[in-house]
Amino acid sequence: MKLSVPMPLRLVLLVLGTTAFYMYLGQIVPQKEAHPPPPVLISAEMTTEDLVAVGAELASGKGQCLVGCHTVGQSGPLRYPDLDGIGARAATRIEGLSGLEYLAQSLYEPAAFIVPGFADGMQPIDQPPISLSEDEMKAVIAWLQSLGGTPTVTLDTDLGY
């Protein structure tokens, strides 16, 4: 007697097996559900310190700064400049611009100054699809200043944009 699996059954097994294998691959990689960013509320009485916390939340959420583009405290071949110490470095980037002015410029007009060795690629984040409001921009700036510097921005600060 010869044992053999009939051809149609083999085909079905092949189709099911291959599909199951690829589906399994999908199950073993990290599982992350990305929900639309919840609205971050900024109220008028927030202090600079509160803004830093909101800014940090925005950076990895709605603002998307840390979602694949920038890093904090990494070296090696990077896609875009590392933000570690930017709060201290900001004032020395462009002559005539204070740290605050430089940070505001690099968020509203990213193409105005490109860090040497990197390609131009950032979009103005006050425009769609990211569309940060002016208050949210201030929060992000406060967070940036806190990376190696002392945050000074408040909700009353005029960013000039």
């Binding site: 904090v72 405290g73 570690d84 110490g85 709060g87 201290a88 990376l147 190696g148 510097g149 002392t150």
Partner: peptide, 20 residues
């Protein structure tokens, strides 16, 4: 990060020093 970036200034017992 094993050694996270330090702040620029440090205040210990009411005395502020420049970390750099």
């Amino acid at each position: 990060e094993i050694h996270p970036p330090p702040p620029t200034e440090l205040t210990v017992h009411d005395e502020t020093i420049d970390m750099a």
